[in-house]
Design a protein around this nucleic acid. Structure first.
Length: 569
RNA sequence: GUGCCCGUAGCUCAGUGGAUUAGAGCGGCUGACUACGGAUCAGCAGGUCGGAGGUUCGAAUCCUUCCGGGCACGCCA
């Protein structure tokens, strides 16, 4: 509809002398008295045209009434300082509703990004422990934003980036080894780490979670004490990594998250078969050729100061890429990884991560620009932390210290749909306070059930209607839908595609969650006001069609969010 | 100290620079089942939109500043 209006307005605005590049903005007013669509075009044009906004609005409105198709536009009004309020005609609503139903499962999808590709990188937890409630926000957000991008036309790849070679993995291996040693030698002395009794050989910064003992136990069951003799910790590390990854994958599967690709950070350090340098050193070489590298104190520096970067004291600062020990810092593989992403030809590379990583990506973007890549293709979805509240007190989550609630435990307690919806119902930018006791207690009051209930109820009505001989028809006389609540519902249903599009562009799934609640609520009101079964045939068919359209929107919306759309509850 | 995010009803949160009245859920109170699913619906109470300035015809929204909370600022990942 906005497209239609834009096209009708173009000649009108041109006649008035509006700048060529002026595009009127439309919005759906919150107050229904202000029409179905409103534009502030006249106010915006007041300055360039040097005329009173109200006067411009009157002129536009007069012409619009002449030229607009009465089958679509019922009324154009000028209000307030110069708003144009536009009302849709009943015939337009009927036609749009028919169109909606003909799209079926595809309703809500648009093609603004058809032909484009996107890489969404998310979760990306290193295999040091089970996925926690903290990871849950990342996983659900990333997966759902990926789905939203698909809905606006992107071909999306979901990718998991991990590192199984670093210091943390070494400590993980040592942690397993210590637990294993204690099984081999039950008399081994113990010590205290962070209030936990652990074997003497346990690293002070080791992983304290119970899963470490499980892994050690299974190694002991399989190999007895055969591994104790060697100092090599590789078998422990590998066993831990395999077991933990299996666990993580199981959790994601349960959550409904399916990765397309896994990217191992380690490959960025390896020389490719072609004999070229490893990707990270290619990055260093190219930056060097371009004059952005210096060696100082035995380390390799990226001259970020040349681009105006300043430190905490306002002094220009550079960034270390390779330490004097010869080890790269984490920034270097980060840059190389994003080079890899763009080399794979993605039009959009979206990273999903928590607020604690916010500082890392300016360097990545800068590095890409200096290398001649278009860093605008890289976008970041930063979400705020999940703070966990248990027994009325905040729990500081740490995988290492085993202060966490796993996603699996959460799903055990409240189910998958509630878990997903919980992470989706709030804006990514706000801190999410997670009260475990409340989550369990209130799980059957969770809004997700409200949406699912509405969907199931409609399905039930459709079943009932079929029993009484009513059939869903594509050419029901929709002009019979005249009750205000029916019209409100119809208009709400028509907002679905634009809501999805906006949620995708802004990477904000909560917009869809909130929208679905409005639809469910609007339907409940229709349910209160107008019956279907038992009404005169034509009226019943029209109402049945509206119910079916609502089922389509709720169903598509729920599935888009990765939630079940049950036909019965 | 510097940067980023957040501060809206008792609680958890929506809110697109726009038009009398800032919305929803939960919680509280009051009503509605001879009904296609009551896991619902209707109503009431509850707000100096953290404070103060500024821009604008108009500010929860934009700018400045202060207060409160989170996060980040490393030859850690």
């Amino acid at each position: 509809m906005t497209e239609y209006l834009t096209s009708v307005l173009r000649p009108i605005l041109a006649d008035l002398g509006a700048p060529d590049d002026f595009v009127p903005a439309f919005e759906t007013p919150g107050n229904p008295e202000h029409g179905d669509l409103a534009t502030n075009a006249a106010l915006q044009l007041a300055k360039p045209l040097r005329r009173a906004p109200r006067q411009i609005a009157d002129a536009i409105a007069a012409k619009l009434r002449e030229t607009a198709d009465p089958d679509r536009i019922a009324a154009v009004e000028v209000a307030g300082p110069g708003f144009l309020n536009i009302r849709f005609s009943d015939r337009y609503l009927a036609a749009a509703l028919r169109d909606l139903r003909s799209h079926g499962d595809g309703y809500g999808r648009t093609d603004a990004h058809a032909g484009q590709t996107a890489l969404v990188e998310f979760v990306s937890a290193n295999p040091t422990g089970p996925l926690t409630v903290g990871h849950g926000r990342n996983a659900v957000l990333g997966d759902t934003v990926a789905s939203l991008l698909e809905a606006v036309g992107y071909a999306v790849t979901r990718e998991y980036y991990f590192n199984d070679a670093g210091r943390q993995m070494r400590i993980l291996g040592q942690s397993v080894r210590a637990r294993y040693d204690a099984l081999v030698n039950p008399a081994m002395p113990t010590k205290d780490v962070s209030g936990n009794l652990v074997p003497e050989t346990f690293p002070d910064d080791g992983y304290l979670g119970g899963y470490i003992e499980d892994i050690a136990r299974s190694l002991y069951d399989a190999h007895g004490d055969a591994l104790a003799a060697s100092d090599d910790e590789t078998p422990f590390k590998q066993a831990a990594q395999a077991a933990i990854f299996q666990d993580i994958e199981g959790t994601m599967r349960r959550l409904g998250v399916k990765m397309d690709t896994y990217f191992n950070e380690h490959t960025l350090y390896q020389q490719p078969d072609t004999g070229e340098k490893a990707p990270i050193y290619q990055v260093v070489d190219t930056l060097n050729e371009r004059g952005y590298i210096a060696e100082r104190d035995g380390a390799v520096w990226l001259l970020t100061s040349k681009t105006g970067k300043v430190g905490k004291d306002g002094e220009p600062v550079d960034t270390v890429l390779v330490k004097s020990s010869g080890e790269p810092t984490y920034r270097l593989p980060d840059i190389a990884y994003h080079v890899n992403k763009l080399n794979r030809g993605f039009d959009l590379a979206l990273d999903v991560f928590g607020a604690d990583h916010i500082a890392t990506y300016p360097d990545v973007l800068l590095g890409l620009d200096l290398l001649g890549y278009d860093s605008k293709k890289v976008d970041v979805l930063v979400y705020q932390f999940v703070t966990l509240v248990r027994g009325g007190e905040q729990v500081k989550m740490s995988t290492r210290k085993a202060n966490y609630v796993t996603l699996d435990e959460l799903m055990d307690d409240v189910g998958v749909d509630v878990t997903r919806y919980f992470f989706l119902m709030r804006s990514p930018g706000t801190h999410l306070e997670f009260d475990l006791d409340l989550a369990k207690e209130a799980s059957d009051k969770n809004p997700v059930f409200y949406l699912q209930y509405a969907h199931a109820r409609i399905c039930s009505i459709l079943r009932k209607a079929e029993e009484t001989g009513l059939v869903l028809s594509s050419d029901a006389d929709l002009s019979l839908l005249t009750h205000p609540s029916e019209i409100d519902l119809t208009k709400a249903l028509l907002h679905f595609p634009q809501t999805v599009a906006r949620a995708a562009e802004q990477r904000e799934p909560h917009l869809v969650a909130g929208y679905l609640r409005e639809v469910a609520s609007a339907f409940s009101q229709v349910y209160r006001d107008s019956r279907i079964v038992g009404e005169e045939k034509n009226l019943a068919e029209a109402r049945l069609a509206l119910a079916d359209a609502t089922r389509i929107v709720l169903g598509n919306g729920l599935r888009l969010l990765g939630l079940n759309a049950p036909e019965k509850m």
